[in-house]
Design a protein around this nucleic acid. Structure first.
Lengths: 235, 235
DNA sequence: GAGTGGTCTAGACCACAAT
DNA sequence: TTGTGGTCTAGACCACTCC
């Protein structure tokens, strides 16, 4: 009777700690209870609590100091936040007209690879959207996005004709971290069609994972025709 | 007598696994010994091995499949955009062998476009180098660089077999700012040949301008075969 | 010295995959 | 059925910080 197999105990401890931080019970810089105390509270062993706290520490949610205690880490201000550009804003900044088409908005079951990238249990339900963005009437980006329901439970109820998924997520989930991969690949036929491009021409693809409060908020693949798109930046 | 305090056992196990991979004893895709076997080999408990393998799995060095086994993950050729790292260091960080070939090192006259990007008068003399970088013997990057003589007057006298142009420039000119553009294009025949790739396949190109001391230090175009290269970053 | 995190053990049960 | 990884326990010793 010791295990609740569905959700491992160390994850429940992590969830509890995150909830305390979420709700403001534990503030930035506060010391949180020690491993022993948390172990007693949850009726688990100290090793289990240790794993939970260690992972949260790896994720920069907590800060641990040997001999001292465990503290809620300071939220880091992201001046690089501007780098997470909203395509609508970007097009507007060029003085062009932006329009988007919602092609898909649904609940799907996460396969193993997706579940891993989203940090959810394989087979669990996640949200999925496909939006095509147009610049002056020309398709410029296919946004294929999977969203963690734990972060944005109302995702399916949004009107993505008036607000891009990115803008919505930025609003409901304070951004904590981003990682991305850029590659050039040939588009799947469905993508080529949405971009009105020949499938024989390469796409410039940005795969982006955004994190918020210790969870992965969403993973998105942004497909652009290489012939009419490039990434630029400076720092 | 159980602990060697200096280096925790789980780190030693990680180091051993990494060494096996780096020396090629365990190849990409190979299954490695099970937790029980490794625990016996090292005279540690299974939990200790488990932690080592779990962390390596988190780091994408290994791939674990419940019920099946633990495998060496496919090495991705990735580059970090955010830090201007030296490609030689980057390859070394992956535990691979770096080699470079100097194809060109000369003084050229800047045409109008180049002069503008370098911030020098049109028609003035600038330095030009072309270097091909190899990872484990496979060409992975063509570095086509123009350098502002005002910033690095001794550029032509360097030995770029022992030090990459990037490393040299970072040393002589404190980096002040960077701007870049990433695009996917078909390579010119000369580039395709240096990269040993078909000219019909796209390249992932990073155009980068680095500034130092209020001047443009150099502009570089870094060409990579899209099929075996991608950019990655996080913040 | 008391309290904290860092690590480790020798077992155990489970879910899952391959056979 | 067998072997794998995934998780958990109830202790233990250590290094470190703080008082």
């Amino acid at each position: 009777m010791k295990n609740a197999p569905a959700v491992p105990a160390y994850r429940q401890v992590k969830a509890h700690v995150l909830a305390q931080i979420h709700t403001g019970v534990w503030q930035e810089g506060d010391a949180i209870p020690g491993e022993e105390a948390l172990a007693r509270t949850f009726g688990v062993s100290r090793m289990t609590v240790n794993r939970a706290l260690r992972e949260l520490s790896d994720e920069q949610i907590l800060e641990r100091r040997q001999g001292s205690g465990t503290y809620v880490a300071q939220q880091k201000y992201q001046s690089t936040l501007v780098e997470i550009r909203n395509i609508a804003d970007e097009i507007a900044a060029r003085g062009h007209a932006h329009r988007s088409e919602l092609h898909r908005l649904e609940r799907v079951k996460a396969n193993e690879a997706l579940a891993q990238r989203l940090g959810v249990p394989p087979g669990s339900q996640v949200f999925h959207s496909v939006v095509v963005h147009f610049e002056n009437g020309v398709p410029i980006q296919v946004e294929d996005r999977h969203v963690n329901p734990a972060v944005a439970p109302d995702y399916l109820a949004q009107d993505f004709a008036t607000q891009t998924p990115n803008a919505y997520l930025m609003r409901v989930a304070p951004l904590k971290g981003v990682s991305f991969v850029i590659e050039a690949v040939l588009p799947p036929p469905a993508v080529a069609e949405m971009l009105a491009m020949p499938p024989s021409e390469p796409c410039l693809v940005l795969h982006r994972q955004t994190r918020s409060l210790g969870k992965v908020a969403s993973v998105a693949s942004l497909w652009h025709p290489a012939s009419r798109y490039r990434f630029a930046g400076a720092f």
